Amino acid sequence: MQDTDNKGQVHLAIEGGIASVTFDRPAARNAMTWAMYERLRAICEQLREDRSVRVVRFQGAGGEAFVAGTDIAQFQDFDGERGVEYERQIDGTMQLLAGLPMPTVAVVEGWCIGGGLAIASTCDFRIVTPATKFGVPIARTLGNCLSIANVAGLVAAFGRPRVQRLLLLADLVGAEEAQACGYALEVVPAEGIEAAAQKLCKKLASLAPVTQQVSKEALNRLLRHDLPEAEDLIRRTYGSLDFREGVQAFVQKRPPVWQGR
């Protein structure tokens, strides 16, 4: 079954019990617009109720990126409250994705940054190519922050020391390191990633779905347990002069000048 609604440039196809979700904006490295996030939420809501789907795979179009974050040009009129609203929407989208009852697989080629890293980290498994790079370089590029739920998800996926590097040093994690720490299930050449993804999806589809469902929910409940309130941190960051400078510097294609205010 092919989904013909191209709204938001996120496509859905379902065949043989495997759903394929494609982020399709290769000219911008599949950076997410508001419409793309809205479409992703709608797809997750649809798949959550579709008992014929046994596995969901996510991938980016074009081979250069999975998702290179959120489209930064959309942040130009933000303040602290808009930042809180945005992070709530991201958290809501990730909750929908995490709540899919069937196993999920991120098929990652190239850049997987910011919002793309959140999507990939929310999936149950990740297959990557040698050129894949994971990161949240906001301390270098934009001057914003992540929600506490997003940070908790990254710590669960990578461990605190690597997340400190990602957030405080704006480092990138490559494919080999991602596999070594257990984040990436497999690293395969770009020409073999489709076959590897199909093999994994078919194996997942052959296993006991109820066991998979309750196991996923148990893991999700552990991650959600007792997360502290942190919206004050989001308001402070998105309301800062540095964040406004980061957005304007990106739009004007120049390095940002941080003032710590």
Score class of each variant (00 low, 15 high):
residue 200 L to P: 04
residue 188 V to I: 03
residue 6 N to A: 04
residue 21 V to K: 08
residue 162 R to E: 14
residue 144 N to G: 01
residue 97 L to H: 01
residue 84 V to K: 05
residue 41 R to Y: 09
residue 53 V to R: 15
residue 86 Y to F: 05
residue 176 E to M: 09
residue 109 E to N: 10
residue 141 T to P: 10
residue 91 D to Y: 10
residue 86 Y to G: 00
residue 7 K to Y: 15
residue 24 D to K: 12
residue 251 V to I: 15
residue 225 H to F: 15
residue 36 M to I: 06
residue 226 D to F: 14
residue 90 I to A: 00
residue 190 A to S: 15
residue 96 L to V: 01
residue 11 H to D: 05
residue 220 N to Y: 12
residue 182 G to T: 03
residue 134 F to G: 05
residue 190 A to T: 15
residue 16 G to S: 05
residue 224 R to M: 13
residue 59 Q to W: 11
residue 91 D to K: 14
residue 135 G to E: 01
residue 197 A to F: 12
residue 133 K to C: 02
residue 260 G to C: 08
residue 257 V to F: 13
residue 127 I to T: 02
residue 221 R to M: 11
residue 100 L to Q: 00
residue 65 A to E: 06
residue 181 C to I: 15
residue 67 V to A: 08
residue 157 A to K: 14
residue 161 P to H: 04
residue 213 Q to W: 11
residue 118 A to P: 09
residue 107 V to A: 08
residue 188 V to T: 00
residue 23 F to A: 02
residue 138 I to W: 10
residue 174 G to K: 08
residue 242 D to E: 04
residue 236 R to N: 10
residue 116 G to T: 00
residue 182 G to D: 02
residue 51 R to E: 12
residue 57 R to H: 14
residue 109 E to S: 09
residue 227 L to A: 06
residue 169 L to W: 12
residue 73 A to F: 05
residue 6 N to W: 13
residue 233 L to K: 13
residue 160 R to C: 05
residue 205 A to N: 06
residue 210 V to T: 07
residue 47 L to M: 05
residue 138 I to L: 10
residue 251 V to N: 08
residue 255 P to R: 11
residue 235 R to H: 07
residue 96 L to C: 05
residue 116 G to P: 11
residue 94 M to W: 11
residue 156 A to S: 10
residue 156 A to C: 07
residue 78 F to M: 00
residue 52 S to M: 07
residue 241 L to Y: 13
residue 144 N to S: 07
residue 69 G to D: 05
residue 93 T to L: 15
residue 107 V to W: 01
residue 103 P to W: 04
residue 13 A to F: 11
residue 61 A to P: 12
residue 112 C to F: 03
residue 26 P to K: 02
residue 219 L to G: 06
residue 212 Q to W: 01
residue 139 A to F: 08
residue 246 G to V: 06
residue 8 G to F: 06
residue 4 T to N: 12
residue 192 G to A: 09
residue 165 R to M: 03
residue 240 S to P: 00
residue 208 A to K: 15
residue 131 A to H: 15
residue 66 F to Q: 01
residue 47 L to C: 06
residue 60 G to H: 04
residue 154 L to V: 10
residue 223 L to A: 01
residue 25 R to C: 03
residue 225 H to D: 08
residue 79 D to E: 01
residue 20 S to A: 04
residue 28 A to K: 13
residue 132 T to N: 08
residue 132 T to P: 14
residue 150 N to S: 14
residue 102 M to L: 04
residue 53 V to C: 12
residue 3 D to K: 15
residue 92 G to S: 04
residue 39 R to I: 10
residue 239 G to A: 03
residue 250 F to W: 14
residue 11 H to I: 13
residue 246 G to R: 11
residue 183 Y to E: 02
residue 131 A to W: 14
residue 203 K to N: 10
residue 70 T to R: 13
residue 246 G to C: 03
residue 174 G to Q: 07
residue 60 G to D: 00
residue 133 K to M: 09
residue 90 I to K: 09
residue 38 E to G: 13
residue 37 Y to F: 09
residue 28 A to W: 09
residue 215 S to M: 12
residue 8 G to D: 03
residue 102 M to I: 04
